[in-house]
Amino acid sequence: MKAKIEEVCGVKVFDGISSKSLNRILACGDIIDLKKNACLYHDRQDLYYVYFLLEGKVTLVKPNENGESKVVFILNPGDTINQPVMRNNTSAVECWGFERSRILRVGFDDFDEIMSKDYVLARNCMAYMENRIRRLYRQLKNSVTINIEKRLAAKLVRLGLDYGSKIDGSCMTMIDLNLTVTYLAKMLGCQRESVSRAMKSLTNRGIVELDGRKISVDIDKARGFFKV
Protein backbone atom coordinates (compact mmCIF):
# COMPACT_ATOMS: atom_id res chain seq x y z
CA MET A 1 0.00 0.00 0.00
CA LYS A 2 1.39 3.39 -0.99
CA ALA A 3 1.67 6.06 1.69
CA LYS A 4 0.03 9.47 1.54
CA ILE A 5 1.81 12.64 2.52
CA GLU A 6 -0.43 13.24 5.55
CA GLU A 7 0.44 9.78 6.87
CA VAL A 8 4.20 10.37 6.97
CA CYS A 9 4.39 14.00 8.08
CA GLY A 10 4.87 12.90 11.70
CA VAL A 11 8.07 10.97 11.00
CA LYS A 12 10.75 12.85 12.92
CA VAL A 13 13.60 12.54 10.43
CA PHE A 14 11.40 13.94 7.65
CA ASP A 15 11.06 17.28 9.44
CA GLY A 16 12.24 20.12 7.18
CA ILE A 17 13.30 17.98 4.22
CA SER A 18 12.59 19.14 0.70
CA SER A 19 9.27 18.40 -0.98
CA LYS A 20 11.22 16.61 -3.71
CA SER A 21 12.74 14.24 -1.15
CA LEU A 22 9.38 13.63 0.52
CA ASN A 23 7.69 12.89 -2.78
CA ARG A 24 10.52 10.53 -3.69
CA ILE A 25 10.09 8.70 -0.36
CA LEU A 26 6.36 8.37 -1.01
CA ALA A 27 7.04 7.02 -4.50
CA CYS A 28 9.63 4.48 -3.31
CA GLY A 29 8.01 3.41 -0.06
CA ASP A 30 4.98 1.40 0.89
CA ILE A 31 3.03 0.74 4.09
CA ILE A 32 2.87 -2.62 5.82
CA ASP A 33 0.86 -3.77 8.85
CA LEU A 34 2.46 -5.49 11.84
CA LYS A 35 0.26 -7.39 14.28
CA LYS A 36 0.74 -7.41 18.04
CA ASN A 37 3.47 -9.89 19.06
CA ALA A 38 4.45 -10.39 15.40
CA CYS A 39 8.11 -10.13 14.36
CA LEU A 40 9.18 -7.53 11.80
CA TYR A 41 12.74 -8.84 11.64
CA HIS A 42 15.06 -11.08 13.64
CA ASP A 43 18.54 -10.57 15.08
CA ARG A 44 21.30 -10.82 12.44
CA GLN A 45 18.77 -10.88 9.63
CA ASP A 46 19.68 -9.28 6.32
CA LEU A 47 17.49 -6.22 5.82
CA TYR A 48 16.58 -4.44 2.63
CA TYR A 49 14.43 -1.61 3.98
CA VAL A 50 14.52 1.34 6.35
CA TYR A 51 11.41 1.20 8.54
CA PHE A 52 9.48 4.17 9.97
CA LEU A 53 6.70 3.74 12.53
CA LEU A 54 3.46 5.53 11.56
CA GLU A 55 0.95 4.06 14.04
CA GLY A 56 1.12 1.82 17.09
CA LYS A 57 4.19 0.77 19.08
CA VAL A 58 7.02 -1.69 18.46
CA THR A 59 9.82 -3.00 20.64
CA LEU A 60 13.48 -3.51 19.83
CA VAL A 61 14.73 -6.64 21.57
CA LYS A 62 18.23 -8.15 21.92
CA PRO A 63 18.33 -11.92 22.50
CA ASN A 64 21.24 -13.69 24.16
CA GLU A 65 22.79 -17.13 23.68
CA ASN A 66 20.46 -18.60 26.32
CA GLY A 67 17.34 -17.66 24.39
CA GLU A 68 16.48 -14.85 26.79
CA SER A 69 15.67 -11.39 25.47
CA LYS A 70 16.19 -7.86 26.76
CA VAL A 71 13.84 -5.12 25.62
CA VAL A 72 16.04 -2.23 24.49
CA PHE A 73 13.44 0.32 23.38
CA ILE A 74 9.71 0.79 22.96
CA LEU A 75 9.25 2.96 19.87
CA ASN A 76 6.41 5.37 19.16
CA PRO A 77 4.79 6.78 16.00
CA GLY A 78 7.28 9.02 14.22
CA ASP A 79 10.29 6.94 15.24
CA THR A 80 12.78 5.39 12.85
CA ILE A 81 12.91 1.68 13.66
CA ASN A 82 16.30 0.65 12.27
CA GLN A 83 19.41 2.56 11.22
CA PRO A 84 19.10 4.33 7.86
CA VAL A 85 22.64 3.20 6.97
CA MET A 86 23.54 -0.20 8.40
CA ARG A 87 26.74 -2.21 8.31
CA ASN A 88 26.16 -4.90 5.70
CA ASN A 89 22.40 -4.21 6.09
CA THR A 90 22.33 -6.76 8.93
CA SER A 91 20.12 -6.21 11.95
CA ALA A 92 21.72 -6.02 15.41
CA VAL A 93 18.39 -6.53 17.24
CA GLU A 94 14.90 -7.94 16.75
CA CYS A 95 11.76 -5.89 16.20
CA TRP A 96 8.36 -7.04 17.51
CA GLY A 97 4.91 -5.48 17.51
CA PHE A 98 4.01 -4.23 20.99
CA GLU A 99 0.59 -3.43 19.58
CA ARG A 100 -0.93 -3.43 16.10
CA SER A 101 1.18 -1.05 14.02
CA ARG A 102 1.49 0.50 10.57
CA ILE A 103 4.98 0.91 9.17
CA LEU A 104 6.45 2.76 6.20
CA ARG A 105 9.31 0.93 4.54
CA VAL A 106 11.75 2.34 1.99
CA GLY A 107 14.48 0.35 0.24
CA PHE A 108 18.02 1.01 1.52
CA ASP A 109 19.36 1.92 -1.89
CA ASP A 110 16.51 4.32 -2.59
CA PHE A 111 16.81 5.96 0.83
CA ASP A 112 20.58 6.25 0.52
CA GLU A 113 20.15 8.05 -2.81
CA ILE A 114 17.57 10.43 -1.34
CA MET A 115 19.82 11.21 1.65
CA SER A 116 22.76 11.92 -0.65
CA LYS A 117 20.77 14.74 -2.26
CA ASP A 118 19.17 16.19 0.89
CA TYR A 119 21.52 17.34 3.65
CA VAL A 120 18.65 18.05 6.06
CA LEU A 121 17.45 14.46 5.82
CA ALA A 122 20.98 13.12 6.34
CA ARG A 123 21.53 15.46 9.31
CA ASN A 124 18.17 14.48 10.84
CA CYS A 125 19.06 10.81 10.60
CA MET A 126 22.45 11.37 12.23
CA ALA A 127 20.90 13.43 15.04
CA TYR A 128 18.21 10.80 15.60
CA MET A 129 20.77 8.01 15.85
CA GLU A 130 22.98 10.11 18.13
CA ASN A 131 20.05 10.52 20.51
CA ARG A 132 19.43 6.77 20.45
CA ILE A 133 23.09 6.11 21.27
CA ARG A 134 22.89 8.52 24.22
CA ARG A 135 19.86 6.63 25.53
CA LEU A 136 21.82 3.38 25.23
CA TYR A 137 24.67 4.93 27.22
CA ARG A 138 22.24 5.86 30.00
CA GLN A 139 20.84 2.33 30.00
CA LEU A 140 24.36 0.91 30.24
CA LYS A 141 25.20 3.22 33.15
CA ASN A 142 22.05 2.27 35.02
CA SER A 143 22.57 -1.44 34.42
CA VAL A 144 26.02 -1.61 35.99
CA THR A 145 26.11 1.06 38.68
CA ILE A 146 22.88 0.74 40.66
CA ASN A 147 20.86 -2.05 42.28
CA ILE A 148 17.68 -3.56 40.89
CA GLU A 149 15.31 -1.36 42.91
CA LYS A 150 16.97 1.83 41.68
CA ARG A 151 17.16 0.48 38.12
CA LEU A 152 13.45 -0.27 38.19
CA ALA A 153 12.68 3.19 39.60
CA ALA A 154 14.77 4.81 36.85
CA LYS A 155 13.02 2.76 34.17
CA LEU A 156 9.56 3.65 35.52
CA VAL A 157 10.49 7.34 35.50
CA ARG A 158 11.46 7.08 31.82
CA LEU A 159 8.25 5.22 30.99
CA GLY A 160 6.22 7.75 32.96
CA LEU A 161 7.79 10.64 31.06
CA ASP A 162 7.33 8.93 27.68
CA TYR A 163 3.91 7.31 28.13
CA GLY A 164 2.44 8.71 31.32
CA SER A 165 -0.48 10.94 32.17
CA LYS A 166 -0.76 12.85 35.43
CA ILE A 167 -3.55 11.67 37.75
CA ASP A 168 -5.75 14.59 38.83
CA GLY A 169 -5.30 15.52 42.47
CA SER A 170 -2.39 13.11 42.89
CA CYS A 171 1.38 13.16 42.70
CA MET A 172 1.25 9.93 40.68
CA THR A 173 1.69 9.53 36.93
CA MET A 174 -0.07 6.57 35.30
CA ILE A 175 1.98 4.77 32.64
CA ASP A 176 -0.35 4.20 29.68
CA LEU A 177 1.04 0.78 28.77
CA ASN A 178 -0.06 -2.73 29.71
CA LEU A 179 3.13 -3.83 31.47
CA THR A 180 3.67 -7.16 33.18
CA VAL A 181 6.44 -7.95 35.63
CA THR A 182 7.79 -10.37 33.03
CA TYR A 183 7.98 -7.61 30.43
CA LEU A 184 9.69 -5.24 32.88
CA ALA A 185 12.19 -8.01 33.63
CA LYS A 186 12.98 -8.17 29.92
CA MET A 187 13.46 -4.41 29.85
CA LEU A 188 15.91 -4.59 32.74
CA GLY A 189 17.62 -7.84 31.76
CA CYS A 190 16.78 -9.39 35.16
CA GLN A 191 14.95 -12.36 36.56
CA ARG A 192 11.19 -11.95 36.98
CA GLU A 193 11.41 -12.76 40.68
CA SER A 194 13.96 -9.99 41.28
CA VAL A 195 11.77 -7.42 39.56
CA SER A 196 8.73 -8.61 41.49
CA ARG A 197 10.57 -8.08 44.78
CA ALA A 198 11.82 -4.66 43.65
CA MET A 199 8.30 -3.65 42.62
CA LYS A 200 6.98 -4.66 46.04
CA SER A 201 9.71 -2.58 47.70
CA LEU A 202 8.89 0.49 45.59
CA THR A 203 5.21 0.04 46.37
CA ASN A 204 5.94 -0.10 50.10
CA ARG A 205 7.97 3.10 49.77
CA GLY A 206 5.02 4.88 48.14
CA ILE A 207 6.92 5.34 44.88
CA VAL A 208 4.68 3.02 42.86
CA GLU A 209 0.98 2.13 42.89
CA LEU A 210 -0.41 -0.92 41.08
CA ASP A 211 -3.88 -1.44 39.60
CA GLY A 212 -3.87 -4.67 37.63
CA ARG A 213 -1.42 -4.14 34.77
CA LYS A 214 -1.55 -0.38 35.17
CA ILE A 215 1.42 1.09 36.99
CA SER A 216 1.52 4.59 38.47
CA VAL A 217 4.75 6.21 39.62
CA ASP A 218 5.60 9.27 41.70
CA ILE A 219 8.24 10.64 39.35
CA ASP A 220 9.76 13.13 41.81
CA LYS A 221 10.00 10.55 44.59
CA ALA A 222 11.40 7.94 42.20
CA ARG A 223 14.08 10.35 40.97
CA GLY A 224 15.07 11.16 44.51
CA PHE A 225 15.29 7.43 45.27
CA PHE A 226 17.49 6.28 42.40
CA LYS A 227 19.81 9.32 42.49
CA VAL A 228 20.74 8.79 46.15
Results as ranks from 00 to 15, higher is better:
N124E: 10
N37D: 15
I32Q: 12
L34M: 08
L26H: 06
V120C: 11
K117M: 06
V72Q: 05
R102F: 09
G78D: 08
L136W: 09
G29F: 02
G56V: 09
V50W: 00
R138G: 11
T59I: 14
G107S: 08
G107E: 07
Q83I: 08
Y128C: 03
T59G: 11
W96C: 02
K62A: 13
V85R: 13
E130S: 14
M129D: 10
R135E: 15
L121K: 03
A127M: 15
P84S: 09
L53Q: 01
L60P: 14
Q45E: 15
E113I: 01
I25D: 02
N89Q: 10
N124P: 06
L104Y: 03
P77W: 00
V85N: 06
N131A: 14
L60C: 13
M86H: 00
D112R: 11
I81S: 02
A127L: 15
N37M: 07
E55D: 14
E94L: 07
I32C: 12
L75S: 05
V61N: 09
S69E: 15
W96L: 10
I146R: 09
Y48C: 08
E130P: 00
T80I: 11
I25T: 03
Y41F: 15
Q45F: 02
N64I: 08
T145W: 10
C95Y: 07
V106M: 08
I31C: 05
G29N: 04
P63N: 10
M115G: 03
D112I: 07
Y137M: 10
N64R: 07
Y49Q: 11
G56K: 08
F111I: 05
F73S: 01
R44W: 11
L47H: 02
E99W: 01
Y137N: 13
I25K: 02
D112W: 05
L121N: 04
L140E: 15
V72A: 02
A122C: 09
L53M: 08
V58N: 05
Y48W: 03
G78M: 03
M126W: 08
D118K: 01
R138Q: 14
K36N: 11
Y49E: 15
I25V: 15
V106A: 07
E130M: 11
L34Q: 08
D118A: 04
F111C: 07
R102G: 05
R134C: 12
P63R: 07
L53G: 01
M129T: 07
V61L: 04
L104I: 10
I74E: 09
N147H: 07
C28R: 14
L54G: 04
R44D: 13
V85M: 13
